[in-house]
Amino acid sequence: MRSFAKPLLEILAGIPTIVYGLFALLTVGPLLLKLFGQGEDGVFGLNWMSGATSVLTAGVVMGIMLIPFVSSLSDDIINAVPQSLRDGSLGLGATKSETVRQVVLPAALPGIVGAILLAASRAIGETMIVVMGAGAIAKFSANPFESMTTITTRVVSQLTGDTDFASPETLVAFALGLSLFVLTLGLNVLALYIVRKYREQYD
């Protein structure tokens, strides 16, 4: 089971983001629009969404994209918890779920937090899904049904096509790129620090 599921997870984690982007643009977006938009014609008669591109669309698809990533990383981490701890717990008469919840998970928690941070950093830097799914309207809103923009979308829209390297737009895009780099770098340093700290505990 495991020897089959693990490579499958890894292969799934290797699906390029353009696939998910297309999925967001052509499948999930229109589906969400049908559910939460279109007024009378929609499934619930709601009119919350005005177009298929929205933060929700991008978010849902990104969530799907990160499932194999997070589970593969967490699996590695949970697997690194020594078998002797599991045996110890089972030998005392704990059930499997008690062992998992009270011994394995607490032991693996720091590593899992690290994995989630890595996933967050990937989500922030994700480009294709937001370019294709979240729209490009720069606005500040708490409504997930509206389309909004992200750092990566701005960079793409400023720098695609013929680029004039002296223009302010280009410079803005470079600045955005720098902030993105610093932001994700910070998250990665933190996540990797936690994961490494965790690994040392059992080496």
Binding site: D87, V103, A107
Partner: peptide, 24 residues
């Protein structure tokens, strides 16, 4: 109860280690 070859205390406090069995 089973005691193993290699000492395998849980990565918890001494108190929690001992109270684990009675608790479950």
């Amino acid at each position: 109860g089973l005691v193993f070859q290699k000492p395998n205390p849980f990565p918890k406090s001494i108190y929690d280690n001992v109270s684990y069995g009675p608790r479950i």
